[in-house]
């Protein structure tokens, strides 16, 4: 099977398989409940979305002048032609597209064009673990700081503590994460030497980068928890809980907080997308060898294969994380319809 033919088959598959899944999802709604149907539909949309993003990015990149081998000065035309032939760039664009699409199901994006001797898959495999560690740690900071601060501020409403915490939260949302990183780096890294400045080799090296990444989102979570809790605490069922003699701690933590967390779950999707975006910056600040740095560099270098791989990676990540956030929301709140 020629690469082009393979590409055509994959193209057809990306249109038809999601359609079948979608149809199955509609049927499953009646027989197997909403969870399975939700999963089917989301996966179907993911397939179509991936195809559209792939196609748009591919042709956008080719439409913009300049190729991966233009920057290297004084390259003999013969050498350049050979290089382009090696990566198949001398073929018609449609054929290149189909060939690239053909590799998509097996996650084979081909060799990197600027980082020689590496395939795109290898770059992603090397960069993903540090990036995921950073992202998860930031998520942990977001919840571990955001929720307690929000609860504290709401339960002491109007006190100096509340005013201070609320002001700090507003400030946290107003500072770009790299400015925060710079401000914290001076005392914690350069002056005292408590934390390492860069890299991700030891456990304490994760602390500062993930804090800088998660802090703005922790601020938003704190605000959401505070307003949510204040609203919930006025509800009748909270009064009932108090009336039956529960301690204030159990009323707030055991009953009210659960209701107040719903806005936080809704915020989870945008927050995850934001953490991914922020990691592009934080990875550069702390010289973390993750995928974020490659994303920006490959687009700047016109590394066709690598940047395509990166766009697809982030599309799937953002889409998948959004779907998970929606799923959690739907499971926690039966009033929300999963679609």
């Amino acid at each position: 099977m020629t690469p082009a033919l393979r590409g055509l088959v994959v193209l057809a598959g990306f249109v038809v398989v999601p359609a079948i899944l979608f149809w199955l999802g509609g049927r499953a709604e009646r027989s197997h409940g909403r969870l399975l149907s939700f999963a089917c539909r989301r996966i179907a949309w993911l397939g179509w979305t991936a195809l559209v993003v792939f196609t748009l990015s591919f042709f956008l990149m080719r439409a913009v002048p300049g190729g991966p081998f233009d920057d290297e000065r004084r390259m003999a035309p013969q050498v350049k032609r050979n290089l382009e032939a090696r990566f198949g760039l001398d073929r018609p664009v449609a054929e290149q597209y189909l060939a690239a699409l053909g590799g998509l199901p097996s996650l084979d994006f081909g060799p990197c064009m600027t980082l020689r001797d590496f395939t795109v898959r290898e770059i992603i495999a090397q960069g993903l673990p540090p990036s995921m560690l950073l992202g998860l740690a930031a998520l942990a900071w977001m919840l571990l700081i955001g929720v307690p601060v929000g609860v504290l501020a709401a339960t002491r409403r109007g006190s100096t503590l509340d005013v201070t915490l609320t002001a700090l939260a507003s400030l946290g949302m107003a500072v770009p994460n790299f400015v925060l990183a710079g401000a914290l780096m001076m005392p914690l890294v350069f002056w005292s030497g408590w934390l390492p400045a860069a890299g991700l080799t030891t456990v304490d090296a994760v602390l500062l980068p993930s804090f800088c990444l998660g802090a703005p989102f922790a601020a938003q979570v704190a605000r959401l928890v505070r307003t949510g809790l204040l609203e919930v605490l006025t509800q009748d069922w909270v009064r009932t809980a108090r009336a039956k003699g529960l301690s204030e701690r159990r009323v707030v933590l055991g009953h009210a907080l659960r209701g107040a967390m719903l806005p936080v779950v809704t915020f989870l999707g945008p927050a995850l997308a934001g953490i991914l975006t922020g990691s592009l910056v934080i990875e550069q600040v702390f010289a973390i060898p993750g995928v974020g740095t490659h994303f920006v560099q490959s687009a700047l270098n016109r590394d066709y294969t690598l940047s395509l791989g990166m766009v697809m990676l982030y599309t799937v990540l953002v889409y998948g994380l959004n779907a998970v956030a929606d799923l959690i929301h739907g499971l926690l709140d039966p009033r929300v319809s999963l679609s």
Binding site: V53, L276, A299, L317
Partner: peptide, 16 residues
Amino acid sequence: YALPLMFIVIFVVALL
């Protein structure tokens, strides 16, 4: 909403 819009912006700006 589900697309990595920020990434697409970065991508587009770099290409432009």
